[in-house]
Structures are given as structure tokens and as C-alpha cells.
Simulated assay, not measured.
Amino acid sequence: MIQILAEDGAPRLDRFLADRFPDVPRARWDAHVRTGAVRVNGQSVSKGGTKLRPGDQVETELPVIPAPAAHLEAEAIDLPTLFEDSQLWIVDKPAGMVVHPGPGHAGGTVVNALLHRLQTPLASGVGEEEGEEESEELSTGWPGLVHRLDRYTTGCLCLAKTAEAQRAIQAQFKARSVEKRYLALVRHSPRLPQLGTLLVDEPIARHKQDRLRMVVAAGGRPAQTRIRVLARTTSVALVECELLTGRTHQIRVHLAHLRAPLLGDPLYGGPGRWKDAAGEALVLPHPALHAWKLSVDHPLTGARIDAVAPIPEAFRTLAAALGLPEL
């Protein structure tokens, strides 16, 4: 915890943090604040420009700063290709694969695979001065990334092959012109429509005690998810989730808010064990979430690219075991 002293004056929050921790750029602090990871006097704030007063108490953890591309290793990792040309590479990410290096995952990531495919260094298309959102749907400065998927989420992941393409696709994400649809297996909930569509419009912030979790909370960042029930039994449902914004863990948080958590997602209340239609025990090793469809405009031609990731066999098998119609 940091306490603001009288001699500090009334600085902006992001500038104050950048002065206290000069190894972290101010734009990175601004992005970190926007995730809800910084609290002032016990309250999460979402703007780097928040004015501080003498006596204010600031709590936070140091943000993670991506490694520069020059320090990353190119690795020959085979990924299923959904679309590829000189500007973009859209892949079908497998479950368990991390998108970019981090603690415990120095290699074997999608970024490592991209660098090998290019065979030439690729600088990030986003400068620190521009600021990046720490969300699943925007890059955090890693080369080639325009959005992210959780480690165990399968399906469509778009990668940029040039800095210009990275900037262009990120602009589409910010303008919300990218279409992103997911398939999910969830616990049955009376808050879900019988067979129809529901718009969840609830702000999301980082949990104040558990920093690994996000929650629906007043004062959080605006978040919208359109949820359509495709099939259901008395205990489970197959839903399609369309992301209208891109907050961290957005689908998982909004489904948990509806009391319909993802199967295999204990972090948000989803069971790690279940019984199939015959009453036999099932072990669910990871959240049942698949990034099914992704539509973006080509950064050079403007042509719409519609990528569809085949539903994984494990997802199909689980849905069938739960008594849902064949996918």
C-alpha cells in the first residue's frame, strides 16, 4: 500500500505510479488501472487520470510487461490454419496452449509459433504510448496479437503478420466491428431463456480479494454479451455467446452471473465433475468453451473474412454424454 504525502501534490494516478515505479511506462500503468487492478482508498478505479489527494491510499500489484520480440524464441509448432495470407494468420487454437509467454510458460505459445512461421522478427504494432487494454480481446504489446483466448479455450485466434495489420485489426476490435461467437456448455439456470436470446449488459471489474477472478460490479468496465440458448436438458444447456465487448473472462463472468457457469470452470462456480445422461461420473478437465466463429475485415482489401473453427471432438463427446443433440 502506498500513501500519498502532502508534498506529492494532487497528481494523476497513472503519473504518480509511473514516478514511483519508473521501470513501468505510464501507458502501461494507465492500461493496468483500466483493468480495475488498482484501488484508491479501498475502491477500484478505472481511469489513469484519476486525481489523487494527500492522504489517499493506493493499492496495486506491478503490471506484467511483455518481453520484447527480440527475446522471444521462434518455435516450429504446428497449428491448424483457418485462414492465411501475407497479412493475417487465423488459427484453431487447441486446449491447453498459452497464447503468449508468461510465468511458467517461457515457450510453446502461439506467439512462438507465429515467429517461426514468419522467419523474420516482427515488432509489436502497438506502442506503449498508445495504451493497451489488459483484456482477452486486445493485445498487450505482444508481437502479432490482436486478441487473446484463455489457455483452455479452443478455437479462432487471429494473428497479424505485420505491424500495420496488427494496428488495423486492433482498431476493428476497439470499434466493435469484429464478430466473435463462442459455444459453451453450462449448468442449467432459470435465468437463461428457454430457447432464445438474452443480452447481458453488466459491468465487470477485478475481484478485490481474489486477483485471479473478475466479477460483475458497479463501477466496473462496461461489458455486453449476447447469449442464445441452442439446446438444453433439465440440468445443462448448450449456448452461443456473442462478445459485444472484450473484457477479461467476460463470458465466464456473465454466465456465472446468470447462475449458469461453464462446466469445468471451478474458478467461477462451474462443476469440475458431473454425471452423464446415464448417471456415470464425468471429470471435466477444463472449461467447456470454444471460440467458434470470428469475422474481421481484411486490413488491406477490406473484404470480410469469416473463420469457423470445427467443434472439437472432446466438446462433441461431452455434449452427447450430457444428453444434448448431436453437434
Results as ranks from 00 to 15, higher is better:
56 D>T: 13
197 T>G: 11
12 R>C: 04
136 E>R: 03
215 V>K: 10
300 L>A: 11
140 T>H: 13
248 T>G: 01
102 G>W: 14
100 H>P: 06
325 P>T: 14
226 R>F: 14
10 A>C: 15
60 T>M: 15
260 A>C: 04
76 A>P: 02
294 L>W: 13
258 L>E: 12
226 R>S: 12
301 T>P: 04
284 L>I: 08
41 N>G: 10
228 R>D: 11
128 E>H: 10
46 S>C: 09
148 R>D: 07
174 K>N: 12
76 A>T: 09
120 T>V: 00
245 T>L: 09
82 L>E: 09
295 S>I: 14
303 A>P: 05
36 G>A: 02
45 V>K: 08
209 Q>N: 01
93 K>W: 12
236 V>T: 11
285 P>Q: 05
104 G>D: 12
110 V>M: 03
295 S>R: 15
87 Q>D: 08
68 P>S: 02
13 L>F: 10
28 R>D: 02
23 D>A: 11
58 V>L: 04
29 W>C: 04
326 E>G: 07
76 A>I: 07
173 F>W: 06
103 P>N: 10
90 I>W: 14
53 R>G: 14
29 W>F: 08
158 C>F: 09
156 C>W: 13
308 V>Q: 15
124 S>M: 04
206 R>S: 03
211 R>N: 07
9 G>S: 10
49 G>A: 02
142 W>P: 00
266 P>Q: 10
222 P>V: 13
93 K>Y: 12
219 G>N: 07
80 P>I: 14
213 R>A: 09
171 A>F: 01
303 A>E: 15
173 F>H: 08
41 N>Y: 08
15 R>Y: 10
294 L>V: 05
17 L>I: 09
321 A>I: 02
211 R>M: 11
266 P>K: 10
300 L>K: 08
211 R>S: 09
97 M>G: 05
232 R>N: 11
278 A>S: 10
284 L>S: 00
62 L>E: 11
193 P>K: 13
297 D>N: 11
111 V>Q: 07
145 L>Q: 00
161 K>G: 03
82 L>K: 13
27 A>E: 01
252 R>W: 04
184 A>R: 06
288 A>Q: 00
196 G>M: 10
326 E>Q: 15
96 G>Q: 09
255 L>F: 03
5 L>Y: 10
72 L>K: 04
251 I>C: 00
214 M>N: 05
191 R>F: 14
284 L>M: 04
38 V>N: 07
111 V>W: 07
279 G>W: 02
41 N>I: 12
200 V>F: 12
138 L>Y: 14
156 C>P: 00
118 L>D: 03
99 V>H: 06
